[in-house]
Structure formats: structure tokens, C-alpha cells
């Protein structure tokens, strides 16, 4: 076959494939339809509205006065933005480390090291509890725990154990408090996902590794981690995106304070829109956040080798036939 013929053939097959694709789409529409509708209504429309709003100087009067890119210019000149962005990066990176890292540790501890099924379940349930608590209650528990007076739980424990004086934890370490509070609640999700993934690794791999001479640490490194590549990637991306846009625990525990010290971008946008009634500016901040999140997600998928994971396992049939020797 000449090169030209091959090219023509390729074109024709590509066209056929695309026709096929259109037909398949219409067949699938009744099934996808309801969800497509919901996604458009609750995801796409808000994004478009936010973007449109970001081009206005909308305030408490709720008037659509278009001002072009003025809000974006203001954003990049705003002196507090630098602190807020830095806070956001710190918050996302450290919380993520606790979420995914500690979640992985818990999953390995409960699914690999604890062989007793009931004990495993008991531990996992304890770690799930904060998940089932309403955010307001969870935040309130932290406020009590970190109460600045001597009666505060942490203060009284530290005083009894080490004789340390009482201190105002939220005032002195706002970022750390926010990170730990958010990190601990996030671990349970990663723990459940990773535990399920560890349980689904065929037992022969663990046996083969231990016969091959692997210690528990080797098993974790050479068997569990590689098999969990996809769940780890999924959790990392998922948690990153949800952390970038979430602010409810920060709002409830520190409200971004003191003096912007724990203010993150999403909370900043909320404050601008709902405390200062600068809806236009708030929307602009949100838009920047969405664009940033999309770019980050794409980059992360590339870095983790999403395509490679999805494609692997296909047998190279043609070459294989040539090499079967016995």
C-alpha cells in the first residue's frame, strides 16, 4: 500500500468513525440527557453567569453595569491578593498532604496490617465520624477544643501534662489550625477509597512478594503504591480541586482572620461579594479561580500519566505472534 493510499484510507475510516460517533451520541441521549441537563444547569450556567458578572461593577443595587476587564485589573493590583494567593497555596498543599498522605497511611494500616476484619471496620468507622458530623458542629468542636482560656481542651491538657501556659491557638496559628481541621476531615475519604483499592489487589501479588523476599515495607513500596497509582491520582486531583474552592471550615473557624492571615481565594471572593456587596469583583476572583483550577487539573492529569494508565494492558498482538516459541 502506498503512503497516499494509506492516508486516504485513514481519512475515510476517520470520517466513518465520526458518523458512527454522532449516531452513538443520539442513541445515548435518553440515558445521558437528565444528567447532561443537571450538569448544564448547575455547573455550566453558573460559570457563564459568574464570568458575565465579573465584567460588571455589580454592587448591592444588583445592576448589570458592564465595565470590561476593570475587575481583573483591580485583582492583579490588589495588595491583599498576594497574601491571599500565598495562603491558598499553603492551605491546599499542606491540607492535601494530610488528606492524601495520612489517608494512605490509615488505609495501609487498616487494610494491610490489621488482618482482623472487625477491628479494621471499627478503626475506619471512627475515622469516618467527622464526615458524618455537620460542618457547623465540626467547626464548633474545634473552637471548643482550641478555646483560648485555660478551660479550653487543648490548653488544659497541655497544662496538666507539661505545665504550659494557656494560649490563643486560633489567633497565634490561624493557618495551622485551618489546615489540621480540614486535613483530618478529608483523610476519611482517601482512607476509604485507598482501602477499597488495597482490598481489590489480588492476594497472589502479596504472596508472591513475600516469597520473593519482600518485607512489609517493600510490599507497601513495590506492590501497594504502584497498584494505587490511579486512586492516588484521583484523590489528589479531587481533593486539590475541592480544596481550592472550599472555604466553609475556614469561614466557621477563623473567618479568614486575623487580618487576612488565613484568608484563601475562595473565601476572599465570598467576602468581597457577600460582606462588601462587590458582586462584580467577587465574580472576577471566582473566574480566576475556575480558570486556575482547570489548568491545574489538566496539568495534573498529564503529570500522573492518565493516558498511560488507561491504555496499558493491551497486548501487542502482531508482534506477539512472531515470538511464541514453544
Amino acid at each position: 500500500m502506498s503512503e497516499l493510499e494509506a492516508k486516504i484510507l485513514e481519512r475515510v475510516t476517520a470520517k466513518k468513525a465520526s458518523m458512527e460517533g454522532v449516531r452513538k451520541f443520539f442513541t445515548a441521549l435518553p440515558f445521558l440527557g437528565p444528567f447532561l441537563f443537571l450538569i448544564i444547569l448547575f455547573y455550566l450556567v453558573p460559570v457563564i453567569l459568574t464570568f458575565t458578572m465579573s465584567l460588571t461593577s455589580m454592587d448591592y443595587a444588583l445592576e448589570w453595569n458592564f465595565v470590561g476587564l476593570k475587575n481583573f485589573v483591580r485583582f492583579f493590583q490588589d495588595s491583599s491578593v498576594k497574601i491571599v494567593v500565598l495562603n491558598t497555596v499553603k492551605y491546599v498543599v499542606y491540607t492535601l498532604m494530610i488528606n492524601v498522605g495520612f489517608g494512605f497511611f490509615l488505609a495501609v494500616a487498616t487494610s494491610y496490617f490489621i488482618k482482623n476484619e472487625n477491628l479494621r471496620l471499627a478503626f475506619q468507622t471512627i475515622w469516618m465520624l467527622p464526615r458524618m458530623t455537620p460542618p457547623v458542629v465540626y467547626a464548633l468542636l474545634w473552637l471548643w477544643f482550641l478555646d483560648p482560656t485555660e478551660a479550653g481542651t487543648l490548653n488544659s491538657v497541655l497544662h496538666k501534662l507539661f505545665g504550659l501556659p494557656a494560649q490563643n491557638w486560633i489567633l497565634n496559628h490561624p493557618m495551622k489550625v485551618v489546615i489540621v481541621a480540614n486535613g483530618l476531615i478529608g483523610t476519611s475519604l482517601a482512607m476509604v477509597v485507598f482501602s477499597a483499592a488495597i482490598k481489590s489487589i489480588p492476594v497472589d501479588y502479596f504472596r508472591a512478594a513475600s516469597v520473593d523476599g519482600a518485607s512489609d515495607w517493600d510490599v507497601v513500596r513495590h506492590v501497594i503504591v504502584p497498584f494505587l497509582k490511579w486512586p492516588i491520582m484521583f484523590m489528589t486531583i479531587w481533593q486539590t480541586l475541592s480544596l481550592i474552592t472550599s472555604y466553609e471550615y475556614i469561614l466557621l473557624i477563623t473567618d479568614g482572620g486575623p487580618l487576612n492571615r488565613s484568608e484563601v481565594l475562595s473565601l476572599f471572593s465570598y467576602h468581597k461579594a457577600f460582606s462588601n456587596y462587590e458582586f462584580g469583583y467577587g465574580a472576577a476572583i471566582s473566574t480566576v479561580l475556575v480558570i486556575f483550577a482547570v489548568i491545574l487539573a489538566v496539568v495534573m492529569l498529564k503529570v500522573f500519566g492518565y493516558d498511560a494508565i488507561m491504555m496499558r494492558g493491551e497486548i501487542d498482538e502482531k508482534r506477539d505472534k512472531d515470538h511464541i516459541s514453544f
Partner: peptide, 17 residues
């Protein structure tokens, strides 16, 4: 198992993918 110096071949082969 790691200290027994045995070789084992499984029905599923258990080759690390």
C-alpha cells in the same frame, strides 16, 4: 516466607503489571 529461600510460581503468575 522472605527468609525461607523458596521460589514460587502461582496459577495467576502474579507478575507485577
Amino acid at each position: 516466607p522472605k527468609d525461607r529461600n523458596i521460589g514460587m510460581c502461582f496459577q495467576s503468575y502474579a507478575l507485577y503489571p
